[in-house]
Design a binder for these strands. Structure first.
Lengths: 210, 210, 210, 210
DNA sequence: CGCTAACCGAGACGGTACGTCTTGTCTTGGC
DNA sequence: GCCAAGACAAGACGTACCGTCTCGGTTAGCG
């Protein structure tokens, strides 16, 4: 799908032919990123990226299958890196607060939020992009954040019966629905409230435990 | 936003000129709906809708501002009606289970889910559509579902301090994140688990460390 | 094939829809003609014609099937008109001299010759263009020039057994081969010599008539 | 113009460096010829020739300056050889009939005629190709065919004042105009008629008015 | 035997133009 | 005043080739 994938082949031999131009690659990504934040992915045209990067359209089409995957490559790198380091504070509550605060802070940045929302929008009509997003964003983040619950279960803080992914769907879903539907602010208070509900529930008294 | 709204305001008098063709209107909506489910909203073109409906493009542009709003008109009507009737079982748990089960059942239908996801994707790059969606789908549903919590608070089942919208963001967000990111099944078991976590939290009961 | 053809239908009724823009048509032809003489038909691009004419490419493609046919429409009109009026001097020799001199003078003009040669070159790889050229240039001219021989036969100047088209192939062919192969000048002396050979042959003495 | 020519000049010594691959050369010419007859020179791409020949594009560009010259090399060799041997029958009429019959038979072969017409078309927008064609086809053939008239003048069959090239333009031009404009058949009867007109003219014999 | 030179394949590169597609607007005559 | 038909300007799409280039590797004669 992208350059990195083709690098993954564990071969020492250089392939024949003129090697790919690293300069072209980075100029394309930089141009794409710039156009994404100014125009959104829908109105970012390959045509414009090519012109801005001083690159031919064919070079872009050689390496990226769709506009969406180019957008992904252009924007997603450091985003994932930032959120991937989940804290280890010694308690679920601390870990989750730290993690969700980071998520909320990242997507709460209007520029990041807008473009991410646009890419998520784009992938609703582009199966390849959806797969790419899952592989490069969702899964890496989930893998890390699941560890919070693994530790919590080991510590006996939460029941070993919980469906970890479902709990993460609740927390992350709440963040994304606010982002995608423009439903409310994304700030630290909201992050903490989300974590609180998920940890303690909304039932008013212990006596109501079912 | 659409024709009916603009007509609804002024007066009882028929406006001058040829009245709007109801036949054209319904043929357009029917064609749009058909093309939406077969091609998705991205590849549904005004051109194709016009041809299928035997209608000129100008007629479509006269009554709908964008492709997205046409899609909304074509698909969203009965959807909202279905989910709007929230049950009143006498307990939060019963009410929420009933409501979330309905939501999950509706969006779990692949055809509905796909097209709704596509419209939500579309509205990420169409502010007018986002507003229209909010006004015609999100808000009406929220207005109804908030009543569940109002009753629960009145009954003392849940704390009066809870942020109702935030709790709904958790529940509905979990459903949508699964839909939009293709993350997991949408079935009754999932619906019940979501409700359980939100009501009771995931903390082990005090003193229940295993 | 072109606009005029579609006009030929002897119907009084205007077809439905927006009528074709005469302004666009003439701007396209003018731009095409200008680019033809400056760049030749091979390097005249539809892209450039559209830009120069302030017209969208689609409008050109709507009305002309190929670059060659556009070139034909752009250049051929007055060319044919000029050569179509064959003189009637009272003798084959006079008529032919007059006609061939006109042909030679027309194609001897470097700009006309170059572009005509280029169109003829183009039509070697474009069957539709070849047909169009035949219908709009070759046949109309042949129809007129055959009359010279009809009159000559009536006057008894030439045998009634001659193959008129073959004689015209000789005369016109000699002009075109010089043009297309860059073989020699095209001037009045050459025109007269061609006519002389065709009328009298090259055999040196009457006694050699076979 | 081509590789052989540049080798022919200097000396007996082999130049330094790896010698040119004869295998590559012949594979290129064979591939070019095949693509020429199937697609015509216009749609024969260097890209396709290279792939078919299993050769890199650079190798082609190293040895041929343009598509046209490659086409010339690929097709023209034996063509010239065939027509170059003009007969010597003892009379102009015999010689010319023999020669023009050969020319007509050669170009009358549809495959040869089509591809030659295409190359001639191509050279209308390629000055280098036009020069190459003249040097490798037209001039060699003219040199031979002029001898027919030299002998005829020596025998007193034709006037010593005739312009030999102009007479050849008439005969060869008639053949080519039929080929290029798709104007009529090319067969022995036509060949003989052409020769007859050029030798005897079309004037009725003096006193033979019918 | 190693050096140097010119060849070779593969294939990426910046470009140009292609012909198609869709968008939203405009311009007719008819209802 | 609505409607169908359909032409229009605009401009992005993805493709095909162009001719150039940059590699690693090959094949010779010469020192």
């Amino acid at each position: 799908m992208n350059a990195m994938a083709s690098r993954a082949i564990p071969s020492n031999k250089r392939p024949p032919g003129r090697p790919r131009s690293e300069r072209a690659r980075s100029r394309i990504l930089r141009s794409a990123a710039a156009l994404l934040v100014t125009h959104g992915p829908r109105r970012m045209s390959i045509e414009a990226v090519a012109e801005r990067a001083g690159v031919s359209k064919a070079t872009i089409y050689r390496w990226w299958e769709s506009k969406g995957e180019l957008a992904l490559d252009a924007l997603v790198g450091e985003l994932v890196a930032k959120m991937k380091e989940v804290p280890d504070t010694g308690s679920v509550e601390g870990d989750l607060r730290g993690y969700i605060r980071t998520v909320v802070r990242t997507y709460g940045n209007p520029m990041v939020g807008k473009t991410q929302a646009a890419i998520i929008g784009e992938m609703q009509s582009d199966a390849a992009l959806r797969r790419a997003y899952k592989a490069r964003v969702t899964e890496p983040l989930r893998t890390e954040s699941r560890k919070i619950f693994a530790r919590a279960i080991a510590r006996g803080e939460v029941s070993r019966d919980i469906d970890i992914d479902l709990v993460l769907d609740l927390l992350i879903g709440a963040v994304f629905i606010r982002l995608l539907f423009d439903l409310g602010p994304l700030n630290q208070r909201v992050a903490d409230s989300l974590v609180d509900v998920v940890l303690n529930g909304i039932h008013s008294a212990p006596g109501h435990r079912s």
